[in-house]
Lab assay of single mutants.
Amino acid sequence: QEELVKAFKALLKEEKFSSQGEIVAALQEQGFDNINQSKVSRMLTKFGAVRTRNAKMEMVYCLPAELGV
């Protein structure tokens, strides 16, 4: 569980995922086979993730800066 949270936060820091499906796929690539869209959705809510525009003006998920991840 701890490893999943770390990987999840690291992915969001990249600010390149525009959908929950993309986050699920990226986590599965890292070996988290039991991850699915509903789990990702709950984690996004739990950590207060928001959708914002990145440098390329794409809408992407990211974590609020005050979490200091």
Rank of each mutant, 00 (worst) to 15 (best):
K16L: 07
F32R: 01
E29K: 12
L12R: 00
F47V: 11
R51E: 04
K13Y: 11
R53G: 04
C62W: 07
Y61M: 02
E15Y: 06
V5K: 08
E3L: 13
T45H: 14
E66N: 10
V60K: 03
G68E: 15
Q30P: 00
S19R: 10
G48A: 05
E58P: 03
E3V: 09
L12A: 01
L63F: 06
K9M: 14
Q30A: 11
L12M: 06
Y61L: 04
A65S: 14
Q1Y: 14
I35H: 01
M57H: 13
K46A: 14
K56T: 07
Q28R: 15
R53K: 10
V5C: 15
L44M: 06
E29A: 14
P64T: 05
Q1I: 11
F17Y: 15
E2R: 10
Q28H: 11
M43D: 00
K13E: 08
V40G: 00
L63P: 02
R53D: 03
A7E: 03
A65E: 14
E2P: 11
F47I: 11
Q20H: 09
V69H: 11
F32C: 02
Q30V: 07
V24P: 00
L27E: 00
Q28M: 12
S18Y: 06
F17I: 04
L67M: 11
G31R: 03
N34M: 09
F32G: 00
L11H: 02
K6I: 12
E58H: 05
D33Y: 13
V40E: 00
Q30E: 06
N34L: 08
R53P: 09
G31C: 03
K13A: 12
F47K: 01
I23R: 00
N54V: 03
E66M: 07
M57Q: 12
E29W: 08
Y61A: 01
K13H: 09
E3G: 10
A26V: 08
T45E: 13
E22P: 03
A25W: 09
S41F: 08
M59E: 08
M59R: 04
E58R: 07
R51L: 15
K9E: 07
Q30D: 04
K39L: 15
N36T: 14
F47H: 07
A25T: 10
